[in-house]
Computed example of a mutant assay.
Amino acid sequence: MPIERLSAALDAIIPPGTDSEELGRGFGGPTGPAEGPVWIAEHGHLLFSDIHNSRRMRWHPEQGISIDKEDTQNGNGQTLDREGRLVVCHHFSRRVDREEKDGSVTVVADKYRGLKLNRPNDVVVKSDGAIYFTDPPPKVPFTPIDHPPELDVAGVYRVSPDLQRINMVVRDLINPNGLCFSPDETILYVNDSNRHRMLIMAYDVEADGMLDLGSARLFCDMRGDDRPGGPDGMKVDVDGNVYCTGPGGIWVLNPQGEHLGTILIEGRASNLNWGDADWRTLYFTGARSLHRIRLSTTGIPVPRGALPTS
């Protein structure tokens, strides 16, 4: 698919003539798209979620696509912590898990003040080890029909590095979805994918990891574009540019929130992440497909602190 260029500044990020490449399709289904791509540097492959089929998929540059894990409880967003352990949001079990190196599973979060979470959706890990995740409202069939909601709020949460404390850091969004930190981790971006809002919000991060709610500000408003898609997965590069799924594909925004252009996709884009040894490939998922595009910029490694190699 071609690139929609709205500003000449996009040329320094996506050189003219660059196109995205489809790596596979046939994932997802009526209850959920492909989601949650994360690059596993030590193995040189990408993992991503097939929500509808409750499985995790693997893409390898030589081996192609295969099943990595079955019965993921409708796993969605996932990332790596500082030790390279996979941290995954699950819709059906309504919790966030960490997969240990020995194969065991540690529950990162499943309740807030004794009440079961709604539907953990996306997750990031700060360089100090704190885990932040979004918990949009419950929604059948993403969550079982016999699991009534216990919380009356859709929140954004922070779990302390030792997993002993969970704090709700944002509570006034309708459908909190994707989230990411600025390169220096002084800003947390969170999008609200409610179809009537389609917003990306920015919050200043305080020294203790909490958010300064008084600093809440609109970073980007995607309303008014009637193409398929909306704010969902979101990442930043080392220069502070923000990449967020939106109407038409993946919106590329400069640090001031100006829309520089869109990486177009047929249908809608769902999530994205950086990968390859130099962290200059943007992998992204669609409703039924997996894609990649090579960029001139460098993404923030996962986990944070991983260094690019030539």
Rank of each mutant, 00 (worst) to 15 (best):
C244R: 07
D162N: 07
L47I: 02
L307S: 13
P37F: 01
I250E: 00
D237Q: 05
S127L: 14
G248M: 05
V38Q: 01
V88E: 07
K126C: 11
N167Q: 15
S20Q: 06
T285K: 02
P33S: 13
L264M: 14
L117V: 01
N167W: 04
V170E: 09
P2S: 14
S93K: 12
I263K: 14
S289Q: 08
W251C: 13
I13S: 06
A207P: 11
L260N: 00
G230W: 03
I40R: 13
I13V: 14
D226P: 13
R288Q: 13
L151F: 00
G257M: 08
T245M: 09
D97F: 07
T31I: 10
F142H: 05
D97L: 13
V125G: 02
A34W: 04
P231V: 01
A8P: 12
P61M: 11
P120W: 03
V252F: 03
D152R: 12
E99R: 14
G267L: 09
M198K: 06
G275K: 07
N74K: 15
L295Q: 05
V125L: 12
G249V: 03
T309Q: 14
R171C: 10
L264S: 09
E35S: 11
N241F: 05
D50T: 02
V242R: 00
T245S: 14
M234P: 09
G84S: 11
